[in-house]
Design a protein around this nucleic acid. Structure first.
Lengths: 161, 161
DNA sequence: CCCAAAGAGGACTGAAATGGTACTGTTTCC
DNA sequence: GGAAACAGTACCATTTCAGTCCTCTTTGGG
């Protein structure tokens, strides 16, 4: 199982909730209650999302959080990045200080980047808008539609899954 | 960072190595030496890959491991699945016994499946063949080529990254 | 026929990361 | 000025994972 940390998991749920709630600010307390997630966690995550630029916060009485962009301009990748740092599936993300101890012996490097990129792309194509949709979206709304009615391998099957 | 366990990470490296090595069997010791990974780990992972049906083993003197399928018939998703179980980014993979304690309040369910599916698809499109290629592949060799010269959103940018 | 090489399987351990909580500021409005 | 709400940080406990070790089984060669 490819593990997303629970923070990112919750983060997406919270962002989705805010997207559905529409305009206006919501307090952490309110969001926690409605999503049935523990308040301290919610609070912690919302703060992180503010730091990541995905939410705006308003302090003081009647304060709360609100989206800083339209739902269609926020991708799942954005949320994950805000909560977990750059998306990548391996240690070799490329720009670390430590250039992979087995660097020259690890001939897989370049192709790892590819894997990371493929996944990142996939997640960037899913927006909050998609997530907030009451009914599950189909693949076709996210990836480019198949050409000449011939579905990309496997994609049509995925929608019925 | 989306975390792949190190086992899966290593697993892909090992499979790639075997794919590059071509026909014939290799001992765990040999593979460990050439990939510069600790033998016990390599041994453990190769065993798991056998259980997953991706490798065949031959016991006794002159034994070793060999791929049980052509490199082009093995996807990165296959390897990850063999080492980590079904691919999914959240607890809600859908078919668990415990149907998610917050089930009816968690309105994100359906769309989570979508995220899982998108990632899974992405990983299924990357084969061992791609990984074993000496030079990094481009996106175009993996995803369907853009129709009428118009690239899928973002994909072309990814290749130059 | 026996021994060495190689895989199979499982148990165990130490460490790191993560989920989760609590406490102490700071801002803002009434 | 006080309460409501966010900000930041430090902290703990649990879980999971990487990595190792040991024993058993299989097989081929001398």
């Amino acid at each position: 199982m490819i593990r997303l940390t629970r923070q990112a998991d919750y983060g997406i749920v919270l962002m989705t909730h805010l997207a559905r709630a529409g305009e206006g600010t919501r307090t952490a307390r309110d969001v926690a209650a409605r999503t049935h997630l523990p308040l301290p966690m919610v609070s912690k995550i919302l703060k992180a999302l503010v730091r990541g630029g995905l939410l705006e916060s308003h302090r003081g009485v009647n304060g709360g959080y609100s989206l800083s962009r339209c739902p269609e301009d926020v991708s799942v990748a954005d949320i994950i990045t805000a909560l977990e740092g750059p998306i990548g599936m391996t240690e070799c993300t490329g720009d670390e200080a430590e250039p992979c101890t087995i660097e020259h012996t690890c001939a897989v490097r370049g192709n790892w980047q590819l894997v990371n990129e493929v996944v990142r792309r996939a997640l960037e194509n899913i927006t909050l808008d998609h997530m907030a949709a009451p009914m599950p979206c189909t693949f076709d709304e996210i990836v480019a539609p198949p050409r000449q009615g011939e579905p990309l391998p496997g994609l049509s099957a995925a929608t019925q899954k």
